[in-house]
Design a protein around this nucleic acid. Structure first.
Lengths: 205, 205
DNA sequence: CGCGAATGAGTGACGCTTCATTCAGGCGGG
DNA sequence: CCCGCCTGAATGAAGCGTCACTCATTCGCG
């Protein structure tokens, strides 16, 4: 295991918002070492605060992870809903969802690692993830698809729930592969390739 | 955290192959509590052996997880290759791959949890997983798809790598959702629904 | 009786969390 | 205008429970 010590602590004076600094640091440390292998002391060092300070802002190590997760989900869902209101064609909506999904993950690789890998690392977090954010996200996809079915664009015999999972799963796999790959390619353009195949598969003829 | 103590230890005499018993027990315990929250002592109790005995068969706790993973992957790839040799149509081959994928996971829920959740819980295991088994599995899908492209069945402009990831991702999401769902539905039939949409999306017209 | 397999209590390290102490800066009285 | 008081934020050393792993001892079979 590589030591975290190689990273210099952030200078004391440049950290105005401690809570924010701790969340950032934690995202970085968790992404590098994994949640269970990360020490609260590492997070504190990278954040430029003392160990004890972490506990002025978070009840426990676990709550730090939960906070990273909650903020990420609420931001992305809000952004997606806002963007979608400007579009009418369900096909364009789905395309925009896919683009946002991959754009957002590729914009912050550390956050992406936490979401794609660390959050999946225990049934407990997974269940939470599933119950809270993922469920709502899948619902967004499902409803958009159903809208397209009613408009006669998509095959009506398809189960919207299953379809939503297929699209999400395909995007999720793109993201996970991108994180694990040593190659340095662009993630976002894959959204269009996925949508191309997906729309072809579900379009009514 | 729920105690493991509620499970009675297996009777001493009924455990002929200790290594096998430990692997089974570990799959069960890891699936219930997560790898990092599981104690070697729990695994030993469920396996019906003493703590120390675990170390006669495995170098470390981590090696137990690795062994579960290696056996699972090698079995499934071997089975898939054998089955595929009896088929000629690439479309049928892909369908069979998808069916096997979901059938195998639904046949052993504990194993499925370890594969879908626990194995993803650290970039380290993920990277290993990716390098070893998953890469080969994706290659199998990709080559089968490319075969169909050469035969004029599938759209030649599609990137076979991306297509393989889409199919895998969709199946993977079905599996993960099934594990996390409290509902008790059949996983395997979803393979056909996924393939239906997938083939529709990639077929040359 | 001998020997390899199995045991499980012990150990040492580790890391989350606590809390007695320090520090910084706003405020009021002289 | 200055100074010392007070408050709450910040500190970081250490307590304390937890667990992976070890090894001296026992077991049981041939």
């Amino acid at each position: 295991m590589r030591s975290i010590r190689s990273l210099p602590p952030a200078p004391r004076s440049t950290v105005p918002d401690k809570r924010e600094a701790i969340l950032r640091a934690a995202t970085n440390v968790f992404a590098r070492n994994g949640y269970f292998n990360s020490k609260v002391a590492d997070v504190a060092r990278v954040a430029g605060v003392a160990d004890g300070t972490v506990y002025l802002y978070f009840k426990s190590k676990e709550e730090i992870l939960r906070s990273i997760f909650e903020r990420g989900v609420s931001e992305v869902v809000a952004e997606a809903r806002a963007e979608l209101s400007t579009l009418t064609d369900p096909r364009e909506k789905l395309r925009r969802i896919a683009q946002l999904h991959l754009e957002r993950l590729s914009a912050d690789r550390d956050l992406a690692v936490v979401f794609q890998v660390e959050l999946r690392g225990s049934t407990k977090f997974m269940a939470e993830f599933s119950a809270a954010g993922l469920a709502e996200y899948l619902r967004l996809i499902r409803e958009t698809f159903a809208e397209g079915q009613r408009a006669g664009l998509f095959r009506v015999e398809l189960n919207a729930k299953v379809v939503a999972k297929i699209l999400f799963g395909a995007l999720d796999e793109m993201a996970t592969n991108w994180i694990l790959s040593p190659r340095n390619y662009k993630l976002a353009p894959l959204a269009d390739q996925v949508l191309d195949i997906f729309l072809n598969g579900v379009t009514a003829r």
